[in-house]
Amino acid sequence: MATDQAHVPAAGELTESGERRRDFIYIATGAFAAVGAATVAWPLINQMNPSADVLALASIDVDLAAIKPGQAIKISWRGMPVFARNLTQAEQDAANKVPVSSLRDPQTLAERTKEGHTNWLITMGVCTHLGCVPLGAGEGETKGDFGGYFCPCHGSQYDTAARIRSGPAPTNLVVPEYAFKSPTSVTIG
């Protein structure tokens, strides 16, 4: 074998004079090919990110006027439920009575609501354990041992400030970004 090809230098092993220039061209070509492939890869990956129409729905206005104290509503935002709850004075007191240091995810009710609107508890209705929707916002649903929310999937219990009290969930129900436009309406997102 390899009689003739003994004369044929392979791409790498080359004669004194040509060596450096050849290597440079091969490396430059390879580098360009690599950069090109990487550049093309980005749109192929980025196309899976939210498209413009999905992003356009990222904020909604919610009217809270119809929610009486002790009641809650579920709103769909980005395809997920948001709980808006009008806390009674008793519920607020119950939440404020709990020593913050004893909590798994220490936060006061004031930190979880907007100033001047502490009766409005607006949280994601998504359990921080594995993403089920907790019970407690709907009419007649169980509110769990702590009067807030109860996740039936794996038994996480939330209190009246939607803070995690027992069960596997690691953190409190997330408070989304929102702002009051008027005393009875908010913009979420």
Binding site: H7, R22, I25, A28, T29, F32, G36, T39
Partner: peptide, 20 residues
């Protein structure tokens, strides 16, 4: 970009085939 890459590709091709 592709023109430069193709140009480099052509030079590489000439180099590889130079002996033959």
């Amino acid at each position: 970009f592709l023109l430069i890459m193709t140009g480099l590709g052509y030079l590489s091709y000439r180099r590889v085939w130079a002996e033959i």
